[in-house]
Amino acid sequence: MSDRKLGWTIHLLAALIIAGLVHIVTILILPRVASRDSYARIASVAPINRFTPLPDARTGAELLPMQDPALARSACRFDLSAGPVRVRADVRGLEGMLTLSFHDRRGGSFYATTDRGALRGGIDVMLLTRDQMTALEALDLEDETPQELRLMAPTHEGFVLAGSLALDAGDLDAARKRLALLSCGRESPRR
């Protein structure tokens, strides 16, 4: 092989290796730099630690794309740095269906349930960081099982997305009202 040919081959190989690296880095870095990801979209309407109704999905105006228009939506953006956050719902006698999904800062889901998953007529979830979980477990009495479901959130910030199914077009208002059964708020520290 002539020196000239060898030179071209090396450059071509280098270009391909760079292409591969750039491809991988782009894919991996996108979730960190995306400015209009699901968290940012929810943050534009929802304050911290409170369920806020999301605007109805309408043609040309979708806060989150690809959502079921039959679901009325509300979201609670959480921040665990000041303490655990508790999500509750009283679903006794509920008509229709409530869905709940818990997401980290990048939008990935770490838990999801519907009102079918309720125990004793209620949904009761506590979101904690690893340290808060350790501290809470230290306070637990040995022979007592906690009343709530404790979830360790992968990131301190994130959001809980709730849905309430409208059984038909005329049920949308009622579906929106059913979202009021949900609450989200900072857990007061235990003594």
Binding site: I27, L30, A34, R36, S38, G108, S109, F110
Partner: peptide, 23 residues
């Protein structure tokens, strides 16, 4: 949270929140 990198990148770009199997 454990979805493959292409799915996560695509979702970050579009802002979609797909249904979780629990729902």
């Amino acid at each position: 949270v454990t979805a493959d990198p292409y799915t996560r990148a695509a979702l970050a770009r579009s802002g979609q929140v797909p249904l979780s199997p629990g729902e």
